[in-house]
Each structure stands twice: as structure tokens, then as C-alpha cells.
Computed example of a mutant assay.
Amino acid sequence: MPATRIETRRGWIGDRRLDIIEAVQRALLAGLKIPEHDRCIRLAEYDADAMIVPPGKGPSYLVIEITLFSGRSLDAKRRLYAALAEELSAFGVPASDIKTVLVETAPENWGLRGLPASDIDLGFKVDV
């Protein structure tokens, strides 16, 4: 049940916003083994003067921040990072221009349907 935010500079995506979002969704499916219907991805584009990036990064530099339940294995995280690099390469984004930040939280700190997620059968495994 990750919540994902993609942030990048305006101008290089054009009319491919939904395609980028879907590519990140596919990477989440492959890496974290979440169900197909588990979708929560936002894309924010910033003017060039509203986002500074490390030296040597290209115009497609992006930060992907994924808030997710604690418990994924290092192998799952490796799968996710590799899947993001593979999916985004189709848009000309080099792996060196992708920064992924995982923010892990306990299920009791995530509210769904008016309840903490720890009290709900989520229908999928977190410890993949």
C-alpha cells in the first residue's frame, strides 16, 4: 500500500505524465509484489528555479519518494530499484538520474477506512 511521489523538473516529460506514472506502478508491482489495484502515485513537476539537483545530472533527474509499510526485504528493495531503472530507461532517463527514497512506517501509523492499517486485513504480504 505504498504512497509514491515523483518529483522532477518541468519540460522533459511533455504529454507522457500518465506513461511515467504507469511505469513507476509497474516497478512497484515487480519490486514489492503489491496487488495491481494498489495505486497511489503523484507526479509533481517544478520550474527549473524551484528544484536544484546534484552537479552532472541531466534534465530528466527525478526523485521518487515511496512511503510504505516496514518489513520489505533488502531483496525486494533491490528488485524495486532495478525495476525503476529499467522502466524509466524507456523514457531516456539514465539510472544515474534516479534517486529513490523509501520512507518506512509501521502499519499503526497509516490510517485506512477510519482505522489503523494494523487492524485491517490488507490482502497482501508486506514481508516479501
Score class of each variant (00 low, 15 high):
30 A>L: 08
49 D>A: 11
71 G>E: 14
38 D>K: 03
10 R>Q: 13
123 G>H: 01
102 L>V: 02
38 D>R: 12
95 A>S: 13
66 I>F: 03
56 G>E: 01
99 K>Y: 13
39 R>E: 02
127 D>I: 04
5 R>Y: 09
51 M>C: 13
10 R>C: 07
59 P>F: 06
15 D>S: 12
5 R>P: 02
61 Y>E: 11
122 L>R: 07
67 T>S: 12
114 G>R: 02
70 S>G: 14
108 E>T: 03
24 V>M: 03
117 A>T: 07
5 R>N: 08
78 R>E: 15
59 P>L: 10
32 L>C: 08
91 F>G: 06
72 R>I: 15
50 A>L: 13
108 E>S: 01
126 V>K: 04
55 P>M: 11
28 L>F: 01
51 M>P: 12
45 E>M: 01
119 D>Y: 02
54 P>R: 09
115 L>N: 12
55 P>Y: 07
55 P>E: 08
119 D>K: 02
118 S>K: 08
56 G>Y: 01
11 G>D: 10
81 Y>Q: 12
27 A>Y: 00
63 V>P: 04
3 A>K: 10
25 Q>N: 05
92 G>C: 15
24 V>K: 00
52 I>C: 13
46 Y>G: 11
7 E>W: 00
103 V>E: 11
89 S>L: 15
6 I>F: 07
80 L>Q: 11
32 L>F: 10
120 I>C: 06
15 D>A: 07
30 A>F: 00
89 S>W: 07
86 E>G: 12
104 E>N: 05
121 D>N: 05
68 L>A: 14
34 I>M: 07
68 L>C: 15
88 L>D: 05
103 V>D: 14
121 D>V: 00
80 L>M: 15
70 S>V: 14
61 Y>V: 11
31 G>Q: 02
86 E>N: 14
27 A>R: 00
88 L>E: 04
94 P>G: 10
50 A>G: 09
7 E>R: 15
114 G>D: 12
22 E>Y: 00
107 P>F: 06
4 T>K: 03
90 A>G: 11
119 D>R: 07
47 D>W: 08
100 T>R: 06
32 L>D: 06
120 I>P: 01
53 V>T: 14
126 V>M: 09
72 R>P: 10
6 I>G: 00
119 D>T: 03
15 D>I: 06
121 D>C: 00
119 D>E: 13
87 E>W: 03
4 T>E: 03
122 L>H: 03
17 R>L: 10
61 Y>L: 10
11 G>I: 06
97 D>H: 10
32 L>W: 00
60 S>N: 05
68 L>V: 14
124 F>I: 03
94 P>Q: 15
